[in-house]
Design a protein around this nucleic acid. Structure first.
Lengths: 144, 144
DNA sequence: CATGCATCCTGTAGCGACTACAGGATCAAG
DNA sequence: CTTGATCCTGTAGTCGCTACAGGATGCATG
């Protein structure tokens, strides 16, 4: 979609795009290679030229990555939001499955935090003669 | 003299070790390759024979991995717990650094959960005409 | 003793999501 | 015109496994 009403066509280099989006240059090229991002037009000398559309897409990808979606999931999301603007239900399915995964991870991590905190506390400043941290890690499974 | 009744010298195969420890056979061999585990003795025909020591070490590794330590960290922990039984302070440093990382991840994940939950809720059953999930992902960065 | 199946062996390649080069080409400023 | 920043392609490395391929043993049964 070429911006008809948009006055200036904002042409930016990959370096600028990288700075603007917070995505590594190498990663942007990587996204292009694996077809997460469409290949942009080039200058006569072969440099990539990006416009607002790519900027938007990249921001979408980045945000979704931050939220822990895999590239595969994001690809699907992008497709769902594409020309067809298909079923919101599909999007909902992906997002809520992902939410479930996140919640699982969250509770695992919370448990882990508790154990670790306890472990570390047992050896508060390293003056203990035998290190309880190692013992706890060692004896995690009591029945050995 | 093979162990008949009481396994005084507990000699086990890699398969048994795998079952006992819950670590994949391939992974055990991988650990050996990258020197996380010492190479065990072999039978005349080249099969690995493990004893209680390896079992212990593997359990230690496994538990530490479950707690999210990297193999590199675990390697250090194993060294620290080795013949020298060196400074508990070092162990404490590693463990608490790791705890800090875990806490960071935990809070990130909690924020993420909140955003995702909200996002998903906005599209509770996919009957909305335009999908709010995509819009939210899209518009995460308001200033674009 | 032969058969057959489970288990083991080595070695290599693949995964996801990047990251880090090497070895050039081009651009913008002084 | 020279310098240094930026860009290009292509390949290989990272982490922590996992999955083969293609073969060699081990053990129970007929």
């Amino acid at each position: 979609m070429r911006a008809i009403t948009s006055p200036r066509v904002e042409n930016i280099s990959i370096g600028e795009l990288s700075k603007l989006s917070g995505v590594n240059i190498e990663t942007i090229r990587y996204y292009e290679r694996i077809k997460m991002l469409p290949a942009p037009p080039r200058t006569a000398t072969g440099r990539r030229v990006y416009g607002p559309a790519e900027k938007r897409t990249l921001a979408f990808i980045r945000r979704s990555r931050d939220l822990g979606f895999t590239l595969e999931e994001i690809r699907t999301l992008l497709d769902l939001g594409g020309p067809e603007r298909a079923s919101c239900a599909d999007v909902h399915k992906i997002a809520s499955a992902h939410l479930a995964k996140v919640r699982g991870k969250l509770s695992d991590l919370a448990k882990l935090e508790a154990i670790l905190a306890e472990t570390v506390a047992g050896c508060s400043d390293g003056t203990a003669p035998d290190c309880p941290v190692l013992d706890i890690l060692d004896a995690g499974r009591q029945s050995d």
